[in-house]
Computed example of a mutant assay.
Amino acid sequence: MVVARIFSTATCRVGLLLALAGGCCTAQAQQAAQPRTAAAAPELPLPQASPHAVLIQTIGLTDVTVDYHTPSVKGRAIWGQLVPYEQVWRAGANENTVLTFPDPVSLNGQAVPAGKYSFYVLPKSDQDWELILNRVTTHWGSEGYNAKDDQLRLPVVPEASPFHENLVYWFSEMKPAGGRLNLSWEKRTVSMLIETDVHTKALAGIEKVLAAYPTNWQLLAQAADYLVQNNIHSELALRYINESLRLKEVYTNNWIKARLLASKQDYGTAIVYGRRALKLGEKDDPGFKSKQPNMRITLTEWQSKAY
């Protein structure tokens, strides 16, 4: 007992001295006394039942991304059973299915700001289904889903489709400014039209490049050709093509100006530039012969409208 008291007293004195010295040793002693947490259990590298998939599709100048997991049918009844009617479904497996739009888009004609959205489907037994974009993307599937965070809901009619064992997202009906995103699983497909304001983004890029290369006649001609092909900003196209012609006159920029004038129904002047394009092409371009027949046909059409 005496020995124990002496040892205890000595320990207290040492502790007091350590505390007066700054407490660092006391802190180390306390840390050493705390129990060590167990290391995280390792995980085996096994395949997932619903593998992860990422689909990226460029629409115009916008890369649309679909990030999802792919469940399988496995002989189960899907619609109305595994995926109940009248309940919000995560449109995949595991975490949220996430759609990413780096630029503003429209979905079935409804405007959607740029951003990331979780994607849900609300299937129904006897009504149109609903496709849902929600602003919260960190849920596990539909757990924690709240309709107050919805960005929009789109009514859609599900279509019968060939059997798909694995859920799959895919794009169709691709055009310069739009395309259709489809979700197919079992014998059902739902889809929505995604459209982008591609011309606004293209024009911003054109102006940036031409500001850096203002005397490049080829870039000026390409910019004018894009505007002519899409029948937009005709006055800007005229400015670009006139500058291209001033810098260097070849058959290509003459033909672009001819087409531009024809689009403005100035067929008489279009014919003048068209004939000049034919003359320069025959003189300077060895590969011109393949283009010549279609150009002559177009000139004939303009002549019928001009006179």
Rank of each mutant, 00 (worst) to 15 (best):
C25W: 12
T26W: 14
Q28P: 07
Q28M: 15
Q28F: 11
A29P: 04
A29E: 08
A29D: 09
Q30S: 13
A32K: 13
A32N: 06
A32W: 12
A33Y: 13
A33K: 07
Q34P: 04
Q34G: 10
Q34D: 05
P35V: 06
P35F: 03
P35W: 08
R36M: 09
R36Q: 14
T37Q: 15
A38E: 10
A38S: 12
A39M: 13
A40V: 12
A40C: 13
A40E: 11
A41Y: 02
A41S: 05
A41M: 06
A41K: 07
P42H: 03
E43K: 15
L44Y: 01
L44N: 07
P45L: 06
P45F: 02
P45R: 02
L46C: 00
P47S: 00
Q48L: 15
A49S: 10
A49L: 11
A49F: 09
S50E: 01
S50V: 01
S50C: 02
P51M: 03
H52M: 11
H52G: 10
A53F: 07
I56L: 10
Q57Y: 11
Q57V: 04
T58K: 09
I59V: 14
I59N: 04
G60P: 09
G60C: 02
L61R: 09
T62K: 02
T62R: 01
T62P: 00
D63W: 02
D63L: 00
T65F: 04
T65H: 08
V66T: 12
V66G: 04
V66R: 03
V66Y: 10
D67S: 13
Y68P: 09
Y68S: 10
Y68H: 13
Y68G: 04
Y68I: 08
H69I: 00
T70H: 11
T70M: 15
T70A: 15
P71R: 02
P71F: 01
S72H: 11
V73F: 08
V73M: 08
K74L: 15
K74S: 14
K74Y: 05
K74M: 15
G75F: 04
G75H: 01
R76N: 05
I78D: 04
I78V: 10
W79Q: 00
W79K: 00
G80F: 03
G80S: 02
G80P: 12
Q81S: 09
Q81T: 08
L82C: 04
L82R: 15
P84E: 11
Y85V: 06
Y85C: 05
Y85Q: 05
E86W: 03
E86Y: 08
V88K: 12
V88S: 07
V88N: 12
W89G: 05
W89N: 06
W89H: 07
W89S: 08
R90I: 10
G92K: 04
G92W: 07
G92E: 06
G92Y: 08
A93S: 11
